[in-house]
Design a protein around this nucleic acid. Structure first.
Lengths: 174, 174
DNA sequence: TATTGTTATACTCTATAACTATA
DNA sequence: TATAGTTATAGAGTATAACAATA
């Protein structure tokens, strides 16, 4: 998709290392010490703030659920299956905006850990009805407690009211 | 890091395909038609809403700047260099929360397109002072106009006031 | 010894395409 | 022919580790 392709990365890098006279500034480098590095247009972009926020929030989720080794996407899959037993893989993939090819691997790992089972559909032999196992149900209950703890971290970080406002603003994306 | 590893994905999949009697439900599948699939705990999680929002916002950014073939991270790198000429790679990486190893490749591609140049530092021969080229400066001006258009799409989607509120709430992450 | 830029590796995620077995 | 699940591949993105040149 890129309009230009990797032509001569090595050659370019070598050329760079060849000293070309001219120093940049009097001081060593801008931003070397106290970080007064401006973001310019970036501060006005919702996407930049949202990206940084998402990095933080996912890292906290992963850390908070590290003892049970569950990542955000795995949690979302188990939650939706738990709330809607019998769903097909296509239905779960569509609902969560996950590629169906990727869901295959996610379910493989959840099935290996005996959290989820793929039961042949009675009506359509191409598809599987997804269910939590007994172990999966009790595990999910624990995951939800840990996820609630993570959610409290979010509230601590941005403020309880701001978290509520955020959920309202973004409700149209869920 | 995962506590359990890929043991027998193939074997498990094969076992699944073996018909195991028992149908799931009377109806075909939950959620096959009208999507009344509940999200359960997910609706209360800021991380889920933020993830969905970020997918939307990045896709719109990429689409809006497709004609110039610039992605969000490339835009953020050029913007920061444009606002702070002479920055080292470490400084840019730290400021934007990008791995310095990844920034190497990002700069390679931006340098190949003659948007950015790595100038040997006068004071520290290990590091480079990053600058936009003349071409990079005029290109960035155009990218900013397109990014502003993208930002209007965001405002259209969630509302002008909500966008402002969002930026305020997430200001601590920039 | 520590740091800068670089290279390399591995794993996650996204985006496709193609295959099979069904419908 | 179309769809569900699967497999495979390629490209971003993230997380590391290690190396050479330099501090």
């Amino acid at each position: 998709m890129a309009s230009q392709q990797k032509t001569s990365r090595k050659a370019a890098a070598a050329a760079i290392r060849r000293p070309q006279a001219r120093a940049a500034n009097g001081r060593a480098h801008a931003g070397d010490a106290g970080d007064d590095i401006g973001l310019d247009a970036l501060v006005g972009h919702a996407g930049y703030a949202v990206r940084r926020f998402q990095l933080w929030i996912f890292q906290d989720f992963i850390k908070t659920l590290a003892t049970v080794d569950i990542r955000p996407t795995q949690y979302s899959v188990m939650t939706v299956i738990g709330a809607n037993p019998g769903l097909s893989q296509m239905a779960v993939a569509k609902r969560l905006g996950i590629e169906r090819a990727r869901l295959v691997h996610l379910l493989d790992s959840l099935e290996e850990r005996d959290f989820v089972s793929r039961i042949p559909s009675a009506t359509d032999r191409r598809s599987h009805a997804l269910h939590l196992t007994a172990r999966g149900r009790s595990a999910l209950a624990q995951f939800k407690r840990l996820a609630a703890e993570h959610e409290r971290h979010v509230a601590d970080k941005i403020g309880k009211d701001n978290r509520e406002r955020l959920l309202q603003i973004l409700a149209c994306f869920t």
